[in-house]
Design a protein around this nucleic acid. Structure first.
Length: 421
RNA sequence: GGAGAGGUGCCGGAGCGGUCGAACGGGUCGGUCUCGAAAACCGAAGUACGGGUAACCGUACCGUGGGUUCGAAUCCCACCCUCUCCGCCA
């Protein structure tokens, strides 16, 4: 959500920021609603003050037995005026909110310009990509091992699901535990086991609603399946006023993620790269505005560390304006090299949302020594997507005989096994 | 799911429909006292919106949303949540 005061102060800057997202100017419309709202609000408050004064006077008069009929008559007309003006104010406020809540966050000035992913900027490459020649794709490897089954998954659930069994099921769990271990023991994150079904308010807070409902699964009782643990973790502080000493808060969670994948029909249909359900270890930080930029770098490095330790080739990509997500001001994607596919594919996305989500969910803190409250900054990043890590491990460490070498860091969770198959 | 009780400020806990943004107690912060501390005493302190350069003024907020009333923390309705008992259940 945007700060209406900032828009008032510099509408042109606001429109320029929208243009970087490829969106038309909106400030004129917004400011018109804002002015209408403030005008009726002032009128309402003026009459409320008068009404309160009259009510007090009637109270006094009644006790002294005086006649109050004239006062009551005036109050009655005031009541009608207030009701009408209040309706106006609410309508204007609703129009204002409707306009504001659909606009994406302002981009950091450093975000590269560009309409889509083709304009993203590669900042850093780590490791040597294994040549694609002769490399098989993860589903070929998994199916040949008899440990990855899409036909049976389709029988149970339809397309975009997978069944893993035996060593692959264990590998998936090993990856997740390895990640959690690093983030909780080395990186200072607190593990959380959150609800996976959340209400409208939570989805609104992180920005999935109202615009992106079609990407979500909804339960019959009106709740939503979380598309990422970012939603429950970030909303943990919704509506709260935190002490500055409590910041930064660093939270991590291993959860399934559910995504409807509407609009991606036909994309990545083979294998388990794009599923309706996948596991992910998420990182969320709640910080002060002063801390958030450094925290963003720190978080990204925590995610990178996982890929490095696994021995995967990865690169950090600075998303351009057109590719940066709705709630984010600045996003780094981590892409892992998939030899089987011969392509870099997203495995993590680390975003600094600044105060955008905090405003939506009204999450604040008390600055040390200062007065009043400020909105916190929220950040989230995958640390990392477990399913895609599994794919990368299979494709990177596949052997000519069809087996897969288990990365050393995972062996403690694999009963010491050095290879699968 | 059924029956009952309840949701008030940082916490506990009052609150005949009018003088309640809210008694009282605790905690917190500042001060007095003290070599220092404790105790005691005095004082301060909610959040948001609107107006104003500012001091400040106004409005709203006692789970949420409606309603009754000249006036609602207080009355009525719906919903949400918590607790107790019963049923069901991993």
């Amino acid at each position: 959500m945007h700060d209406i005061r900032a828009i008032r102060a510099d509408p042109a800057a606001f429109d320029r920021a929208l243009a970087r997202r490829g969106l038309p100017p909106a400030s004129a419309d917004i400011l018109a609603h804002d002015e209408a709202r403030r005008a009726s609000l002032a009128a309402v408050q003026e009459r409320q003050a008068r009404r309160n004064a009259i009510a007090r006077e009637i109270g006094r008069a009644k006790r002294s037995g005086a006649d109050t009929s004239a006062l009551e008559a005036e109050a009655l007309t005031l009541r009608e005026e207030i009701a009408a003006l209040e309706a106006e104010a609410q309508a204007a406020e609703a129009r204002l909110t409707h306009a504001l809540e659909r606009l994406p966050n302002r981009l950091d000035p450093e975000v590269p310009d560009g309409p889509d992913e083709s304009a993203n900027v590669v900042l850093h490459v780590h490791g040597t990509p294994r040549p694609a020649e002769g490399a098989r794709q993860h589903f070929e490897i998994g199916e040949a091992l008899g440990l990855m089954d899409f036909a049976r998954a389709a029988k149970l659930s339809g397309s975009r699901f997978a069944v893993l069994s035996g060593a692959l099921a264990r590998l998936e769990r090993a990856l997740a535990e390895f990640m959690l271990e690093r983030h909780t023991q080395a990186n200072g994150y607190t593990e959380v086991s959150p609800p996976l079904l959340v209400n409208d308010a939570a989805m609104y807070g992180t920005g999935q609603l109202p615009k992106f409902a079609e990407d979500l699964f909804r339960t019959t009782d009106g709740r939503w399946l979380v598309p990422t643990a970012e939603v429950p973790l970030t909303n943990l502080v919704a509506g709260e006023i935190l002490e500055a000493a409590a910041l930064p808060m660093r939270l991590t969670a291993l959860t399934p993620c559910f995504r409807a994948e509407a609009g991606s029909a036909g994309r990545d249909v083979r294998g388990m790269l794009r599923q309706h359900q996948f596991w992910k270890v998420e990182l969320v930080s709640i910080t002060t505005p002063e801390q958030s930029e450094a925290e963003h770098e720190r978080m990204t490095r925590c995610a990178e560390g996982i890929l490095t330790e696994l021995g995967l080739a990865w690169r950090r990509v600075f998303l351009c304006g057109g590719d940066t997500g709705f709630a984010s001001a600045r996003t780094y994607d981590l892409e892992v090299w998939l030899p089987g596919q011969g392509a870099w594919r997203e495995i993590s996305s680390c975003s600094n949302c600044r105060d955008f989500q905090a405003r939506r969910m009204n999450a604040r803190y008390r600055p040390a020594g200062g007065k009043g409250t400020e909105f916190v900054h929220t950040l989230n990043g995958s640390g990392v997507a477990v399913g895609r890590a599994l794919i990368a491990v299979l494709e990177t460490f596949q052997n000519a005989d069809g087996s897969v070498t288990v990365p050393e860091v995972l062996r403690p969770w694999m009963g010491g096994a050095e290879r699968i198959g």
